[in-house]
Simulated assay, not measured.
Amino acid sequence: MTALEDVAPAMVPFRSEAPRGVDFAAVSSALGSDLPTDFKELARRYPTLEFDGFLRVPLPRPGAESAFVDGIRRELEILRDLQDDDMAEGYEAHPAPDGLIPWSESLSGDVFYWRVAGSDPDSWPVVVSGRNDDWWEFPGGAIAFLVGLIDGSVERRGLPGDVSSRHPAVRAFPD
């Protein structure tokens, strides 16, 4: 989390001093899967964040965990439609083996997923589905991906080259 705050210091004023009280057991139960530790740590300290008016990271709100899971389910239905139309590059929606779980999106139609590769959520790679049908994988987790996108160390295949900027503006959506 520190690495993300270092490259996006504008997010720090939105950090909660105490953990936000998200019930991740309820999220995991409803989803049928745990989530990566880095994402849970982000959600314990921050509300939903948006970087440079481009990339939004929806984070569960305490007491509204079911709404968060409903959002994931809607994205999974869209992914299933892409599968049915042979437009998902062979990827499948969770709970299929190696299935995808969405965790972020751009305001331009790009979707960012985890590929559930094994039983350890902390080892799941990020899969990018670009709005122009560019699909690719990043071997790290959500925070490492965000840091790399902001500092320029992650490829941007199919994503705009100028977003997010080196010092992104950050908007928060308080609980």
Rank of each mutant, 00 (worst) to 15 (best):
89 E>T: 08
96 A>R: 04
18 A>R: 12
128 V>M: 04
154 V>C: 02
141 G>R: 00
153 S>I: 06
131 R>S: 15
6 D>W: 14
76 L>N: 08
90 G>L: 00
160 P>D: 01
78 I>Q: 15
56 R>H: 08
131 R>T: 14
164 S>R: 13
66 S>D: 15
19 P>S: 08
48 T>L: 04
161 G>R: 12
65 E>F: 09
37 T>V: 12
63 G>D: 03
172 A>T: 06
76 L>E: 07
87 M>P: 12
90 G>P: 10
34 D>N: 12
79 L>Q: 05
139 P>V: 03
174 P>A: 07
9 P>G: 04
54 F>E: 02
17 E>D: 10
55 L>D: 03
160 P>L: 02
97 P>V: 05
28 S>Q: 11
23 D>Y: 03
33 S>F: 11
51 F>Q: 04
78 I>M: 13
14 F>N: 03
54 F>A: 01
64 A>Q: 15
65 E>N: 07
57 V>Y: 08
29 S>N: 14
48 T>N: 02
161 G>P: 11
117 A>S: 15
73 R>C: 14
76 L>F: 12
33 S>I: 01
20 R>T: 04
33 S>Q: 11
108 S>W: 14
26 A>M: 05
164 S>A: 14
39 F>W: 11
97 P>N: 13
1 M>C: 15
82 L>P: 11
60 P>S: 05
6 D>C: 10
12 V>M: 08
66 S>W: 11
137 E>C: 10
30 A>M: 06
